[in-house]
Design a protein around this nucleic acid. Structure first.
Length: 299
DNA sequence: AATAAACACAACCGCGTCACG
DNA sequence: CCGTGACGCGGTTGTGTTTAT
């Protein structure tokens, strides 16, 4: 039995007498790695006692997940990995585990650290807000990098006033993005204001629609803000189908009523985490003609 | 050479979620 | 339906290393 949690009265699990904290020694690593290889992952709370480690279960789990697991890739983040992180962060925000799940061998902690120490600073130096991935509004807004960013965004638009591509016909099954509640979405539709794509909601031919199994079941006139692109919707649908359905075979994306099946698991996929290769979807998207139809691409 | 500051990343903490009895 | 235990996530802190003064 565990006593109810009361704020301010919680003691960290590692604060018990006899429980070690701080960096792991090679000896501890060996004990933990051998034990998990023999007994398997899970039952972390009781693992330290069973393995003979003076650590809390949380610490053991973290050490295994972020460092000792055989599938963890060590070393520098490659340029293509960095590019993938940037693109996924633009879609998902600080959902590190989701991002990590699509970059084979990288952990959420590693990506989070890399983002905070490298990528966020890099974007800022380029005049881009790392949270929104849009140009920073500063007094020094006439810098070359910002100008280049602005030009790259306006080049695909029909509207010279707009800084984002015009999307006219996007249908995507998108779920649970951005923490937007159904009520928020309903209000947004009624007020004809922009909304975050949310649970089972997508957009089709200028309407905000609700979808079930990729089929539009009701439609109301909404407003496409132009702040999203077809690719975002496409990827959101992949990401969230996968998230909601738990890696089942039904994982799929729906773009303009065309259903794309799930790609094969990544070779490095483990039983608990299925990796998806974005290049597969990029090829699918292009073969479907999405890049031409919507005037946007993965880059 | 000594020290401070900055940086990189490992580790910790609190809380949300889910399965189960 | 509710309470509990366990797990996992994201934010934050701690610590070792590198760089600047």
């Amino acid at each position: 039995m565990r006593s109810p949690r009361v704020k301010g009265q919680i003691t960290p699990c590692c604060s018990k007498v006899g429980i070690k904290r701080g960096p792991w020694t090679p000896e501890e690593d060996e004990v933990l790695a051998n034990f998990v290889k023999k007994e398997g992952e899970g039952r972390w709370r009781t693992l330290p006692k069973r393995a003979g480690l003076q650590r809390c279960g949380k610490s053991c789990r973290l050490r295994w997940m972020n460092y000792l697991r055989p599938s963890v890739k060590r070393g520098h983040i490659a340029p293509d990995e960095e590019d993938l992180i940037l693109r996924l962060h633009r879609l998902l925000g600080n959902r590190w585990s989701l991002i990590a799940g699509r970059i084979p061998g990288r952990t959420d902690n590693e990506i989070k650290n890399y983002w905070n120490t490298h990528l966020s600073k890099k974007l800022i130096s380029q005049g881009i807000d790392p949270r929104t991935h849009k140009p920073l509004l500063t007094l020094a807004s006439n810098s070359k990098s910002q100008q280049a960013y602005h030009e790259s965004n306006t080049s695909t638009s029909n509207n010279p006033q707009s800084s984002v591509p015009e999307i006219n016909n996007v249908s995507a099954c998108a779920r649970e993005i951005g923490g937007c509640s159904r009520q928020d979405q309903t209000n947004a539709i009624q007020n004809n204001s922009s909304i975050t794509v949310g649970n089972n909601w997508g957009r089709s031919s200028g309407k905000v629609v609700r979808l079930e199994s990729g089929v539009e079941v009701e439609g109301e006139v909404g407003k496409i803000t132009g702040e999203e692109d077809a690719l975002s919707s496409f990827l959101e649908s992949l990401i969230n189908d996968n998230e909601v359905l738990g890696n089942q075979q039904t994982t799929q994306a729906v773009v303009d009523h065309q259903v794309f099946p799930a790609p094969p698991p990544h070779p490095m996929a483990s039983s608990s985490q299925q990796f998806f290769d974005l290049s597969f979807w990029e090829a699918e998207f292009q073969s479907f003609g999405g890049d031409q139809q919507y005037g946007c691409s993965f880059k």
